[in-house]
Nucleic acid binder design. Structure first.
Length: 671
DNA sequence: GTCCGATGCTTTTTT
DNA sequence: AGCATCGGAC
């Protein structure tokens, strides 16, 4: 066996096959290597693949691990092993046993918009609607209850103040409404399996028997329910291998419980602990900076990263006048690196604390004609037309999804206004049917003007044809196109968006969406059903949602530090190192400075070769110029590692390449 | 019912 | 500055 490539600590962790073990793996210490080798070791020791459950934090990590195992172990059938995220695993449990909890097996997954929509409806119905603040309060309250495995009763019993009982009522109504629409939210994907296993010991035993060896990656970011899932599954065998780095716990605000990793031994007495500290990613200067920063945190397992490599370049620090200058200086630097150091764009990442920072960079990169891709928020899947197209599909798969129906019923305009919708809801309620079915109700149709009724009929009929079509064997993307066309959405795009240029963009985006269904089919051939397509979409994270087109060309990557977790680049540029931005002002207020520092630590340790930090002395906010102070984290870096030689001109002279490229564009445009 | 301009709010991080 | 929502005019 090829254990020769492993260092002693890695080898120990790989070879300890039974019992509980915690692998404390610092950034870049070959965590994934350990997990894959460990799985290989399990298989080679004769344990069948079906007994192995490997949980990763992202889908991307899961598919990379699968791919690695297949090349590493061609002789084993690794298909029967589970490799995926907690949410995907929970989903598979519910697809099998959801009916025991009163869910139909064809349930759909509520995305963030759906969750917000349902909660808003509930609050309006209960006349608690006014004010965003209240909305946030209830949203946090529900999430908090779920994280602590509390139901409505639990909330009610947890305090005397009247808001406990109000929150309990809202919680109850929210859950009931979701369920009535046959929807399951992200928390349910974890909470319901736990409920099921606690309720029915036989099902739990079946799962325990099936999954005898558990491996959990990024254990520092598990929450209480995820830890509970693992505790229940591990049973008395306790064959659990938790891998993680407490210094990289950056999802505390989402319920991640650092204590899961800090106090692992309490839950699994006698667990063996292995520390991986030899780093294979970064230069020693980068590691020294990271080590120095993280020692300012108090609650952690002490680790010191080291590498056999060179110390490398110093860390560059830019301190410039404004955020626009910051973006331009960085774009210049990116171009320099590309052409002078011959490092491809896709080995360069620009990281920031908050999404809004991406805008200036987009502009400067465009001006410099540097290709880039953005991971996250404002990206492709957030577009209105994509959400509309998706809503059309969501109702088709799940008729009970009234919210999606309401989203698209009048998009494009079919003359169905507020009053008509009220009537529709009323009829749906009295006949106890889904809104989509109520559309065919004669009483409802009679209540609308004949022109409207005609268009409603056309809609219902097209919908019905869609339902029937999806039973037939035709390619998924072809069915999607046929349905969106038949129901009038594709042609409707031209009436929804008046401006010619905008139209073209929107149509193109929807085409790309349809194409993504085709790509999904290519990847999952026989299992590419509408349900699986929607499910995989709902369970995607921002890194999965990067456009296919963007993944192929050589691009600079723009993303938040959160999104960069688990990734590495030759060159990493961290922008906006200013007090109140990084660390974020809210996190300081909420007393989460240590988590911000871990986030900074994550940012630093993404870099292999060169790290560049920058800050602006002023920054526009709400259209006002604000003076900004350097981030306290800058002062935590050892001075001798920093090269803060001021740039000769903050705006560097244009490169020859850049000038000629502008002439090229002009020639193209005017010839 | 639809369109369009005024208003006011935004910026934490996301499976 | 940009976006989302609301209210008034057609």
């Amino acid at each position: 066996m090829d254990l020769d490539h492993l260092n002693p600590a890695q080898r120990d962790a790989v070879q300890q096959l039974d019992g509980a073990l915690l692998v404390l793996a610092g950034a870049g210490t070959g965590k994934t290597t350990v997990i894959t080798h460990r799985i290989a070791a399990l298989l080679r020791s004769g344990i069948p693949a079906r007994h192995i459950l490997a949980v990763t934090f992202t889908n991307k990590a899961a598919s990379e691990m699968k791919a690695r195992l297949i090349t590493m172990l061609p002789e084993f059938n690794t298909k029967r092993m589970f490799v995926g995220t907690f949410h995907a695993f929970g989903c598979s449990v519910l697809r099998r046993f959801g009916d025991r909890l009163g869910y139909s097996k064809a349930f759909a997954i509520a995305d963030t918009d759906d969750q917000n929509g349902v909660l808003k409806q509930v609050l309006t119905d209960m006349k608690l609607g006014e004010g965003e603040l209240k909305f946030e309060f209830f949203k946090n309250g529900i999430r908090h209850a779920n994280n602590n495995m509390q139901n409505a009763e639990g909330i009610r019993n947890s305090g005397r103040m009247s808001w406990f009982s109000t929150l309990a009522d809202v919680y109850d109504a929210y859950q009931r409404r979701l369920k009535s629409m046959n929807l399951v939210d992200f928390d349910d994907l974890l909470g319901l399996p736990v409920k099921l296993w606690t309720m029915d010991q036989r099902i739990l035993e079946e799962y325990r028997d099936r999954y005898r060896y558990l491996l959990i990656d990024e254990y520092q970011d598990t929450n209480r329910i995820q830890a509970e899932m693992i505790r229940l599954l591990s049973g008395t065998r306790k064959n659990i291998c938790a891998v993680g780095d407490d210094d990289q716990c950056i999802y505390g605000w989402r319920g991640a419980e650092v204590n899961n990793i800090l106090e692992f031994e309490k839950g699994y007495p006698g667990a063996r602990i292995f520390k991986l500290e030899q780093n294979y990613r970064s230069t020693n200067n980068i590691l020294a900076a990271a080590n120095a920063v993280i020692t300012n945190n108090s609650r952690r397992h002490t680790k010191t990263l080291w590498s056999e490599g060179t110390s490398g370049d110093q860390i560059k620090l830019f301190e410039v006048a404004t955020e626009t200058v910051e973006a331009n200086v960085i774009a210049d630097l990116v171009q320099d690196i590309r052409y002078e150091k011959d490092i491809p764009y896709n080995e360069i990442a620009i990281l920031f604390r908050s999404n809004f920072q991406s805008r200036v960079f987009e502009q400067s990169l465009r001006e410099h004609r540097i290709p880039y891709r953005i991971v996250g928020a404002k990206a492709f899947y957030e577009r209105r037309e994509i959400k509309d197209a998706l809503a059309y599909l969501k109702v088709l798969h799940n008729k009970a999804d009234n919210m999606s129906l309401l989203r698209i019923l009048n998009v494009p305009s079919r003359g169905i206004g507020e009053k008509t919708v009220e009537k529709l809801k009323e009829i749906a309620e009295t006949t106890d049917s889904a809104l989509v079915d109520a559309l065919e109700n004669e009483e409802f149709l009679a209540s609308t003007r004949s022109a409207v009724a005609k268009r409603v009929r056309e809609f219902s009929e097209a919908f019905q044809r869609g339902v029937e079509n999806f039973d037939e064997s035709m390619s998924l993307s072809a069915k999607v196109r046929l349905y969106l066309d038949d129901i009038g959405y594709l042609a409707g795009l031209k009436t929804i968006y008046k401006i010619r240029e905008e139209q073209a963009v929107r149509v193109e985006n929807v085409e790309e969406f349809i194409n993504s269904a085709a790509l999904f089919e290519e990847r999952f051939a026989e299992t590419a059903s509408l349900q699986n397509f929607l499910e995989s979409y709902a369970l995607m994270d921002d890194n999965d949602r990067v456009r296919e087109a963007d993944a192929e060309i050589e691009n600079v990557t723009l993303m938040t530090v959160h999104a960069a977790k688990g990734l590495e680049y030759e060159i990493v540029i961290v922008a906006g190192l200013e007090e109140d931005l990084f660390p974020h002002e809210l996190s300081v207020k909420e007393d989460n400075l240590e988590e911000e520092r871990r986030l900074f630590y994550v940012a630093l340790t993404r870099a292999k070769q060169q790290l560049v930090l920058s800050r602006a002395r002023t920054r526009m906010r709400y259209n006002r110029k604000e003076i900004r102070c350097p981030s306290q984290f800058i002062a935590e870096l050892p001075q001798e590692l920093i090269d803060s030689t001021q740039l000769r001109n903050e705006i560097a002279p244009a490169k020859q390449e850049y000038v000629s490229s502008i002439f090229d564009t002009m020639r193209e445009r005017y010839s």
